[in-house]
Amino acid sequence: MTFDLSIITANADAIWNAFLVTIYTWLAGSLLGLMAGLLIAALMLFGGRPLQRLLRVFIELVRGTPFLVILFLVYYGGPSFGVRLGAITAGVLCIAFYSSVYFAEIFRSGFAAVPRGQLEAGECLGLGRLQLMWRVQLPQMLVLILPAIVNMLTILCKETAVLSIITVPELTAVLTGIGTRTFTFIETLLVLCIAYLLLIEVTSRVGRWLERRVGTYLQR
């Protein structure tokens, strides 16, 4: 079999757009997931027993379900409730939804790592729970949870490949599409693998750089 990379250059536009879609769904979904995760963690911290238990059940259910099944539920099952989402929107929302419970666990372990005494002192000075979270807990947590968050981000990057199954035009969908159409499986799949490996490696490097920066900033 011949190895001909011209098929890549011929479809450069489509591939570039697919790359952008991958980046978009990945980063937008992760950002929303981070915010939702923080919200869930905060609710579990401040909320009463019943709320905590409810959220705990919610977290376990989402973590026990494959990402693909959540995608199907939202994209194909949504219309039963009148919710008709575009593929990309569904993709972003599902990534956000799925990742929120993992981020929530990361935030929770971070909150627990800050000594209780510091919170008691703040409480006695009159600081509100929200103020304590924002000004005392989060700044100290950052160094601790950064590795876990970066790790989760790489996992989510790989999950975007699954979006191809619900016809989101991201890298996997587009490149395998080209491969099937033109029987250039080797070239397209190779480029696909390299693309993901690059993304993961770049994310890891950026993550390590960030950890160093935040570390020194807090050390002073």
């Binding site: 790989k158 999950e159 490949a161 491969g179 499986f185 080797i186 799949l189 693998c193 993961i200």
Partner: peptide
């Protein structure tokens, strides 16, 4: 094998 998504690995094995 940790960098490439499982789905892609599956497709590679199946098609190649």
């Amino acid at each position: 094998f940790r960098g490439v998504p499982l789905l892609v690995q599956l497709l590679v094995i199946y098609y190649l």
